[in-house]
């Protein structure tokens, strides 16, 4: 039995199959108790190797974040300037300047050694609603709303998890554990009892582009915005990845012929 050259390369297929098999089977298994039963899978525009963000979706999502989420949640890693960068909501620079100027931020000290307030600039990070964790807990009955910059990457299920939480407020099913005072029932939250009251409601945020403001739409838009916030270079990554893949596949093809040529006097 003489192996063909392609058969000889089977080790790479075996290694790739095993690696991919482990990568795809282990992620939900590592989360306690397997897949979250309340998770609703959404088909996102940024899924898959060619996925990109939907600009209008991100812009609407920013509005939901600004008007609703940002009253309790910080987003310390995102700066106003990011809003006009390529691969994001791509607001114009003028729009971003105006957005930033809508906030008063503390700066200083000035030459007199005093801190002062000034309008926000593009280089400022999104202002946080509370000066520190203690202040947030004191104001919110002991609960601490997590920083949202990386929330999508820090939760099993990603953007779909955020969407599922936002649309997961229901009346507890019959026979469910009583919800402790101060907590709320949520089908997607691990343990089902969440401190955050339902943040988003039908018709809450008025969209500038006339999109109907259903709860489903608002939840989707803000989840997509948070996905961008945690992975702002996704489009650049996908684009470069495609080029690298094409390069490597062509290179492998060329090397394949090189190997055949080099070894032709040995068979």
């Amino acid at each position: 039995m003489k192996m063909t050259m392609i058969q000889k390369l089977a080790p790479f297929a075996a290694v790739a199959a095993l690696t991919l098999g482990v990568a795809f089977s282990s992620a939900p298994a590592q989360a306690e108790g397997g897949e979250n039963p309340g998770l609703k899978h959404v088909a996102w525009s940024f899924d898959g190797p060619f996925g990109t963000y939907d600009r209008s979706e991100l812009r609407r999502g920013y509005k939901v974040y600004k008007e609703v989420c940002s009253t309790c949640h910080s987003m310390n890693l995102v700066h106003f300037r990011n809003l006009s960068e390529k691969g994001g909501p791509e607001f114009s620079e003028a729009e971003v300047k105006a957005l930033a100027a809508g906030y008063q931020v503390q700066d200083g000290p000035n030459e007199q050694g005093e801190m002062f307030e000034r309008p926000g600039k593009q280089s400022d990070p999104f202002p946080a609603p509370y000066p520190n964790e203690e202040a947030a807990r004191a104001a919110l009955g002991g609960a601490y709303p997590p920083d949202m910059s990386l929330l999508v990457k820090a939760r099993e299920g990603g953007a779909s998890y955020i969407y599922s939480i936002l649309t997961g407020y229901t009346t507890p099913p019959a026979g469910a554990e009583a919800v402790p005072a101060g907590l709320h029932y949520n089908a997607a939250f691990p343990g089902n009892h969440i401190a955050m009251p339902q943040p988003l409601n039908e018709g809450q945020v008025d969209y500038d582009d006339g999109t109907p403001n259903t709860l489903d739409q608002e939840a989707k838009d803000v989840s997509a915005f948070l996905a961008w916030a945690s992975e702002p270079k996704l489009e650049q990554r996908h684009r470069l990845g495609f080029q690298v893949m094409v390069f490597l596949i062509v290179l492998s093809g060329l090397l394949y012929t090189v190997v055949r040529k080099v070894w032709s006097d040995q068979h």
Binding site: I249, S252, L255, Y256, V259, W263
Partner: peptide, 13 residues
Amino acid sequence: AKDALGMSLFLIL
């Protein structure tokens, strides 16, 4: 030559 091909295929993964 074989090592180069091996590396290139591994880099795809």
